[in-house]
Nucleic acid binder design. Structure first.
Length: 492
RNA sequence: CGGGGUGUAGCGUAGCCCGGUAUCGCGCCACAUUUGGGAUGUGGAGGUCGUAGGUUCGAAUCCUGCCACCCCGACCA
């Protein structure tokens, strides 16, 4: 491991890439655009999954699994959706290889093994799922149908970045069917709130809840809800989406149900998802030039204990105390690592665990043995303090809780400082160029002005906030009247 | 996919213009001394120079194709 990371202030992208690799989260693979998620990175993802999965179950959802491949005829059934994803689909055309007669030791695609119908590698699973739902739903008694799946999907991206945009990524996709539009909308909103709850309270990343403009809407949806977060470099990142699909997929796949009243009607759908992109948000929101800063609620290791000793005898003395402490902390649900490697020195370990973002470090040395103390260092502020050893079992849980709140508040403050109201296009452009961040401005609601602003400034409308206040104003470009401000930003 | 760049040991690099079998640092292995913020010394291992062809007596170096990565665009969770 080489020392030091690039500075955020000098090259934010480089800092991000190096951090992801050096902290052992992920690396590029032999496959273009696809990453290898390494054990430490995957451990964080697993914690995210566990929490989210519990939240999904608590709101009545069940997990299932649908195929990776979607026959082309199914894929194209919902036209809007198919067209939206067409440009980035991987397609399976053959099912067999053979030895290449012209090139010894090499294989080639067997031209005789062409599939009668091409298979699309799912960029999302609406098609395969709704074609299945047709068979699952006959009556209002079968509704609502609340299913989630954890899966990988493939979108053939031109330009990729670890976690933020990869050709293959991991996510969960919820797909539900309801008897009424109201119920489906309530589900769409509910899941948006679930995501917001998770992202704010576990990831400690503040979100703006809102709806997308028609331009930014999911292909095939009537309404797309989203949560948007602001990264340290002033760019926005969508951290989750929830779609109200109306009856679009029900109609495309002929999913009808017998109503209580004896009629026959198409069901109403939703879909919602978060992906490994959340990892990118987690990294970019809190981390610093020394490495990752992980919120205690998602850190695979919450506390690391580093012994400082001279000789094996002293290590044995320290170990005895540490093992007892470790047991007590673990009993309180805290994950603890005792880094008793004899092959690295304390200073090296300090730097390494800081790079990996472990929230709390406890160091115990000879002096502490004599005094009955320990040195406690918190990762977020890098403050160190000396604590009574016996108080640690109450001090540490409280500290972790305090840190969780503290890093959220820090991110919240950063967002507040980088959210600017503007009333003129000049000011708008100036804010984008100088400080970045969210820019709150009036918009006349037309796709034309939205498009023009995007072309001229690279900024897009991230969302129309659900809690936006009514305020009469005029579009900064067209001068037409507007009822509320919308969130603009340059985005990932 | 367009424009630009890069690819040499696990990582970071020198050498490439001007062809003669590869430099340095970190890391790795062994031993010793060390251990309260990225240890030091001594010895050692590790390379089909991204890949496939071509030119040449000889290619990391020159030429061509391909692959991957990075930056900037277009596209996007």
């Amino acid at each position: 491991m080489s020392k030091g990371l690039p500075k955020r202030s000098e090259d934010y992208s480089l800092w991000y890439n190096e951090l992801v690799k050096k902290a052992g989260l992920a690396e590029n693979s032999a496959v273009r655009g696809c990453m290898v998620i390494k054990p430490y990175g995957y451990a964080i993802w697993e914690k995210m999954q566990r929490v989210l999965d519990d939240m999904f179950k608590a709101t009545g959802h069940e997990n299932a699994y649908f195929p990776l491949f979607v026959p082309k005829s199914l894929f194209e059934a919902e036209e809007q959706n198919a067209e939206g994803f067409a440009k980035e689909c991987a397609v399976v055309t053959h099912y067999r290889l053979q030895t290449d007669p012209d090139n010894k030791g090499k294989l080639r695609v067997d031209p005789a093994a062409r599939l009668e119908e091409e298979l699309i590698v799912r960029p999302t699973s609406e098609a395969i799922i709704w074609s299945t739902y047709k068979n699952w739903i006959q009556s209002y008694r079968d509704l609502p149908l609340l299913v989630n799946q954890w899966a990988n999907v493939v979108r053939w991206e031109m330009r990729t970045r670890l976690f933020l945009r990869t050709a293959e990524f991991l996510w969960q996709e919820g797909h539900t069917a309801h008897a009424t539009a109201e119920e489906a909308i309530a589900e769409t909103e509910q899941m948006l709130h679930v995501y917001a709850d998770f992202v704010e309270n576990y990831m400690a990343v503040p979100v703006v809840k809102g709806i997308k403009t028609p331009n930014e809407r999911f292909a095939g949806a009537l309404e797309t809800y989203c949560i948007e977060s602001l990264m340290q470099d002033g760019k926005a990142l969508q951290t989750g989406t929830s779609h109200f699909l109306g009856q679009n997929f029900a109609k495309a796949f002929d999913v009808k149900f017998a109503t209580k009243e004896g009629g026959l009607d198409y069901v109403w759908g939703t879909s919602w998802g978060v992906s490994t992109r959340l990892m990118g948000a987690l990294i970019m929101t809190h981390s610093d030039d020394e490495g990752l800063v992980l919120p205690p609620n998602l850190a695979p290791i919450q506390v690391v204990i580093v012994p400082i000793y001279k000789g094996e005898e002293q290590l044995a003395q320290i170990s005895e105390k540490v093992n007892q402490l470790k047991k007590e902390l673990q009993a309180k649900g805290i994950s603890v690592k005792f880094d008793n490697r004899d092959t690295e020195r304390p200073g090296f370990k300090f730097a390494e665990w800081e790079l990996k973002g472990v929230p709390v470090r406890i160091a115990i040395g000879g002096r502490d043995l004599e005094n009955g103390t320990a040195e406690v260092a918190r990762r977020d502020t890098k403050e160190k303090s000396t604590q009574q050893f016996d108080s640690l079992t109450t001090y540490i849980p409280a500290l972790l809780e305090e840190m969780q709140a503290s890093i959220f508040n820090k991110a919240l403050q950063h967002r507040a400082e980088h959210t600017t109201k503007v009333d003129s296009y000049e000011e708008f452009k100036q804010v984008l160029e100088t400080k970045g961040g969210f820019v709150l401005a009036h918009w006349d609601g037309s796709p034309e002005t939205e498009e023009r602003i995007k072309e001229e400034t690279k900024a897009t409308i991230r969302c129309i906030a659900l809690d936006a206040e009514d305020e009469d104003g005029v579009d900064m470009l067209s001068g037409k009247p507007s009822k509320k401000r919308v969130y603009f930003a340059k985005a990932y």
